[in-house]
Amino acid sequence: MSKDRVKEEEVSEGLETYGEFKIEGKVEKTFDNVDLVMFRVDHNKYGYQRIENENIVIEKILASDGPLLLGIFPVAPLNLPAEYATHMMLKLTSPIVLDPKSHVDAYLTMPIEIAVVRSTTTDVQMVDVFSLGKIKYALYGIPENGIICRYYETKINPEIPKTAPYKEAALRVHFHNYTDKINTISRLVFPIKGADFYYRKHDAYYSDLEAIIESSLLQTFLRIDVSSGKWVADRTNMRQKFDGKYLMARGI
């Protein structure tokens, strides 16, 4: 399978905002109205500040005997305002109707959060996490046995969409309808807790989804497999367990 190549012209100009940065003097990164300031206090202490609208919202002191490396990465949008969910629900503003035995590729967008990460050889810890987009959750299924998911409305794109910087990531979905019936998909629910993202300059990408419609005697369901993305981009390494399979048995 050929790799999806993000064209150079599609990558917005500007300084790199995602990535791992060595703090020697002072490093500042701007994300819309949020400024991150990282600076050296003395030989083994470093300061971190998140400034929003000229007010310091978060301030921390980080101790490190060696030079401090801080990563700023797109992460799964599950941390704010609290950890309620492990899955993402993408509601398609225009549902996709699949013919029997058909296969379609499409691109979607999904929300992200931005995390400041301190990683050592043995551990990864989030120093700070924030979101620039609207945060919303939804219940997939019924209260008795449903799951809380991060909720986002998106539309089907035939090509890689232009994402809102620092708010969205792009992802590719391979739709497969293995049944003999026409099926309509209006939402996708898939795991994201512990998942890594891809990033390039200030654009973010998620892994590919295999959305497979299957049917049993009683019902039709959608099986989602999260597989490695083919993006030409760096990949975060949050070193978390990730199970990328989910069966949407409570409606598609």
Binding site: L80, K134, K136, Y137, A138, L139, Y140, I148
Partner: peptide
């Protein structure tokens, strides 16, 4: 309600 992140979009 739509602005409050804790209020579920669905139901």
């Amino acid at each position: 309600a739509a602005r409050n992140p804790k209020i579920l979009a669905e139901p």
